[in-house]
């Protein structure tokens, strides 16, 4: 049963993710794009007469079922079939995180950073609250995220999506290099 617990190599995970694009199109002209669900939840719960949230969100409710499935997939892959070993990081990444005393143990996330009690610290607040806020703000401003632009848009050879993908990678690279080390050192 060990092979069920082992992580998938990139050449298995990547094509599986890619096949979602044609499958959703065939199932009913649906476009893979997950940041749209954030807009939908806003439209359903707190529309507050904001133009961005005035639309028939129920028409796109398939998307909410989709992310419900993603959550279940995360449970199966990350809890039921959890890898008993730590993520097989490169030696240089391990050395990088070790300098901030972040334990590299079993699990997909460092439990010492992503825990409820960490919300009481500036570091935890920046990582989880500010980070989440920027993800939600930026993806809606760009009208798409890694799935909508990076996977769907690029699969459909849309050049604006290439620009989006380059930009969010650039943002991540610059932030990781020049700002994140100061936050992790807090």
């Amino acid at each position: 049963m060990d092979f069920l617990l082992a992580p998938w190599p990139w050449y298995v995970a990547g094509p599986t993710i890619g096949l979602t694009v044609p499958l959703l199109l065939l199932m009913g002209n649906k476009k893979l794009g997950i940041s749209s669900t954030l807009r939908q939840i806003c439209a359903a719960c707190v529309p507050a007469r904001i133009p961005l949230f005035q639309y028939d969100w129920k028409k796109d409710s398939w998307n909410l079922f989709f992310v419900g499935g993603v959550l279940v997939g995360g449970f199966i892959g990350g809890a039921v079939l959890a890898n008993p070993k730590p993520v097989a990081l490169s030696a240089s990444t391990m050395a990088y995180i070790a300098q901030f005393n972040i334990a590299h143990e079993t699990g997909l996330m460092p439990a010492s950073l992503f825990a409820w009690q960490e919300l009481a610290t500036v570091k935890g607040w920046l990582l989880m609250v500010l980070g989440g806020f920027l993800v939600g703000f930026g993806t809606r401003y760009a009208r798409g995220c890694t799935s909508g632009h990076g996977i769907t848009g690029l699969s459909a050879l849309q050049w604006p999506s290439l620009l989006a993908t380059c930009s969010f990678f650039l943002g991540g690279i610059l932030f990781s290099r020049y700002i994140l080390p100061f936050i992790l050192a807090l």
Partner: peptide, 15 residues
């Protein structure tokens, strides 16, 4: 597309 994606990239690095 550019401004929003840059901001999203910062958030992705954090979370």
């Amino acid at each position: 597309i550019i401004i929003g994606s840059l901001i999203f990239g910062f958030g992705w690095a954090l979370t």
